[in-house]
Simulated scan of single mutants.
Amino acid sequence: MELALLGRTLMKLGEAAIPTEGIGAHGTSEQSVIIVAADVKAHPGTPVKDIAARTGFPQSKVSACVARLREAGAVESEADPADRRRTLIRPSGKVSARVAEVRAADIDPVLAAALDDPDRLDEVKSALRLLAAHLDPGALTRIGT
Rank of each mutant, 00 (worst) to 15 (best):
E2W: 04
L5K: 10
L5P: 00
L6N: 02
L6T: 03
T9S: 08
L10W: 02
M11S: 15
K12M: 14
K12H: 14
L13F: 08
G14C: 10
E15W: 03
A16F: 03
I18L: 15
P19Q: 11
P19S: 12
E21Q: 11
G22P: 02
G22M: 09
I23Y: 07
G24A: 07
T28H: 02
Q31I: 14
S32D: 10
V33A: 02
I35Y: 02
I35K: 06
A37E: 05
A38T: 04
D39S: 14
D39E: 15
D39K: 10
D39H: 11
V40H: 00
H43F: 12
H43N: 15
T46D: 04
V48E: 05
K49G: 06
A52N: 06
A53E: 04
R54W: 06
T55A: 04
F57R: 10
V62G: 12
S63L: 08
C65V: 05
C65W: 05
C65D: 12
A67Q: 04
R68F: 04
L69A: 09
L69M: 11
E71P: 03
E71K: 12
A72Y: 03
A72W: 09
G73W: 01
G73D: 01
A74L: 13
A74F: 10
E78Y: 03
E78S: 15
D80Y: 07
A82F: 04
A82H: 09
D83A: 13
R84S: 13
R84N: 02
R85S: 15
R86W: 11
R86T: 07
T87P: 00
I89D: 05
I89W: 06
R90W: 01
S92P: 10
K94Y: 04
K94V: 10
K94A: 11
K94N: 06
V95I: 14
S96P: 08
A97M: 05
R103F: 07
R103Q: 13
R103P: 01
A104N: 13
A104C: 11
A105Y: 03
D106C: 07
D106K: 11
D108T: 12
P109W: 03
P109G: 06
V110D: 12
V110T: 15
A114S: 12
L115A: 13
L115S: 14
D116C: 03
P118Y: 14
P118Q: 14
D122L: 15
E123N: 06
E123G: 09
E123C: 04
A127T: 05
L128D: 02
L128G: 05
L128V: 07
L130H: 11
L130V: 13
A132R: 09
A133Q: 11
A133L: 10
A133R: 12
L135K: 09
L135P: 01
D136I: 01
P137C: 10
G138T: 11
G144F: 07
